[in-house]
């Protein structure tokens, strides 16, 4: 065998080994991402269940001892960001992503319900809540814009609570939520403090749908 042929074979071996290493690394990172998401969801699940249980145990004076769920909502938002990134990396049809989204949606619904129950039990003004329904099946041209506008609003108005749901997710609890809130499939769809709003044209139009004075900010808007 000539020197060039021998070197070419070695080079081919190196190239295959390098490519395989890269493929393995990417796969490993993706698996680690899914594992981290799963761990966060497990922790949040326990936290929410704990909050829920505390709320049930102390029905007489829930507001005295139940910690605010604001922290949990913040963690839920971070989880949503991570899940969205994982979805962009792994694909929306990835079974693990779909499983995590199911679990995430359940957590969101639980948090939404507890927040409402706490406000009612404590007699406090409930926070402004947005149920946002989107689709990434290619049938919602404005969903990316709507999602980004909501991210901006959530960042600017810390008291605002945004719960995002993939309208097409095959999850019983989500289907029930959609049925209860009577949201139709014109996406993006928003339920802002029980008031429905469909489509997205601009940030200003979206802001007009919020109750007057509800968008109080702790930091200057501009």
């Amino acid at each position: 065998m000539s020197l060039a042929a021998r070197n070419a074979l070695i080079a081919l071996g190196i190239t295959i080994a390098l490519t395989a290493t890269v493929a393995y690394t990417v796969n490993y990172l993706n698996r680690a991402r899914v594992a981290e998401l799963s761990a966060i969801e497990d922790k949040l699940s326990i936290d929410i269940l704990s909050l829920d249980t505390q709320f049930s145990l102390l029905t007489a004076a829930p507001c005295d001892s139940v910690a605010s769920s604001t922290t949990l909502t913040g963690e839920l938002a971070d989880l949503g960001t991570r899940l969205s990134y994982a979805e962009s990396q792994l694909g929306s049809d990835n079974p693990q992503v779909i499983g995590l989204k199911d679990q995430y949606s359940l957590l969101e619904i639980r948090d939404y319900l507890i927040t409402k129950q706490l406000a009612a039990a404590c007699g406090t003004k409930p926070p402004v809540t947005v149920l946002y329904f989107y689709s990434n099946a290619g049938d919602c041209a404005d969903c990316d814009k709507a999602g980004y506008a909501l991210s901006y609003l959530r960042s600017t108005y810390p008291t605002l609570r945004v719960y995002s749901f993939d309208y097409n997710l095959d999850l019983g609890a989500l289907k029930t939520l959609i049925a209860v809130t009577k949201v139709n499939d014109t996406l993006p769809a928003f339920v802002i403090n029980s008031k429905h709003f469909y489509g997205f044209t601009s940030l200003e139009d979206l802001e007009k749908q919020f109750p007057k004075g509800s968008l109080a900010t702790s930091t200057p808007k501009h």
Binding site: T19, V22, A23, T25, V26, L29, R33, E36, D78, T81, R82, Y85, Q89, K145, Y148, A149, S151, Y152, S155, T156, S202, L203, E204, K221, H222
Partner: peptide, 25 residues
């Protein structure tokens, strides 16, 4: 980003975390 204030839209909003490392083949 159209219509979103520049003070928000011009800044990155992804945490510095290995999770967001853009690793693809």
């Amino acid at each position: 980003r159209v219509g979103i204030p520049l003070s928000y839209s011009m800044l990155p909003h992804v945490a510095l975390d290995w999770f967001y490392f853009p690793a693809n083949v």
